[in-house]
Amino acid sequence: MHRTTALPCAPEPGRLSEGPVWDHRSQELLWVDITAGLVHRGALAPRADGTDLPDVHVRGTLRLEGTVGAVLPTWSGALLTAAGTSLITVTPSGTAPVAILPVESDGAPRRFNDAACDPLGRLFVGTMAFDATPGAGTLYRLDPTGLRPVVAPVTISNGLGWSPDGRLMYYADSATGQVDVFDYHLMTGAPSRRRVFARVEGGVPDGLTVDAHGNVWVAVWGAGEVRAYAPDGSPIAMVDVPATHVSSCTFAGPRLDILVITTAREELSPAELRAQPDAGRLFVCRPGTIGQSPDLYDDPTTEHTA
C-alpha cells in the first residue's frame, strides 16, 4: 500500500474547515469553515522554504450568517453556497436565493451539510440535524421544481462523488461507518441499488473525492488519515495527516495532482489541541495520481463557455 504524509498550509486554522473544491477556470481553491460561517478563496503558491509541495494563499473570505456546509463554483461564475437552511448564489453584486430546506413535521433544527455536482452539473446536497439525531437527515437532488429527496433517512450526510464514466455514485452517511455505492443513471440523475463499497474502521468516513482512475479517496474523521480505495473497494493508499479530525479532500492544481485536505479543531480537548497545533488547517500532498476535472453547478440560465 502506498503511504505518504501531508504538509500543513499557511492559512490560519479554522474551527471546522470542510468542503474543498477546485475551480479550474480561475485556478482557485474554495473551502468553508462550517460553524464560523466562512467561505474562503485561495490559490496554490510556492512555499517559502522551497519545498516541492505548494502552499495555499488566501485571496478572499466571505462571511455568511449561521453555518455554511458547502460552496461550489457554477457555470455562471457565481458561487453556490449551502448556508444554514438555504441554497444561495453569491456574486460581486449580491446574493440570490435558490432553494430553502423544507421544514419537517418533527420540528428538529436541521442544516445543509456536504454538497457536490454530478457530471452533468446537477446539485446533490445533504442535511443533518444540529444535534446529529439519528435518521434526521436526507440527501436531496436540486431539480427545476425544487429539492427532491433521493436518499433517506440518513444521519450525517457527507461525502459524494461519481466514477469517471458517471455510472456510479459514492456516498458516505458518516454514522454508518461505511462508504456506499449506487448505480447511477446519468440521464435522469437517479441513484439505485445501494450497497456497501468500503467499511471504515478506526474513524468515521467524512468527505470524499474520486480520482481520474476511479479510486475513491475518503477523509477519515478521528483517524488523522485519508484512505484510498480501488474501484473494487480494496484499500490501496493512505495519507497520514498530523491532525486527528480530517474532514474532506479534493484534487487541485493545473495538473490536478495535488490532494488538498481539510481538518477541524472542533471536538478536540485543550490537551489534544496542544498536541495538534495544526488542527483546523489545510494540508497538501502529492499522492501519485490525478483527480477528475471538477463538475460545476449548471445554473438553469447559464450559457456554457469553455
Rank of each mutant, 00 (worst) to 15 (best):
M128C: 07
F124G: 09
T127C: 08
P119K: 13
G137A: 05
Y140H: 01
R111S: 00
L123R: 09
G137Y: 07
G121H: 13
D114G: 01
G135W: 13
N113V: 04
P134E: 14
T145I: 00
T138H: 02
R141M: 14
F124R: 12
D114M: 05
D118A: 08
A136L: 06
N113K: 06
G137S: 08
P119C: 08
R122L: 02
F130P: 02
R122S: 00
D114S: 04
P119L: 13
R111Q: 06
P144H: 06
F130G: 00
G121E: 10
F112R: 03
M128K: 12
T145H: 02
R141S: 07
R141V: 05
T145Y: 00
R111Y: 00
F130A: 10
C117P: 05
A136S: 14
R111M: 05
A116D: 15
P144S: 05
D118F: 11
G126N: 09
D131R: 14
P144I: 07
L142H: 04
D131T: 15
M128E: 09
D114R: 04
C117K: 09
G137D: 05
P134M: 12
F130H: 15
D143A: 14
T133D: 12
P134I: 08
C117A: 09
A129E: 10
A115N: 01
A116V: 05
G121C: 10
T133G: 08
C117D: 07
N113G: 01
L142Y: 09
G126F: 03
L120A: 14
A129S: 15
L120F: 09
G121A: 11
L123M: 08
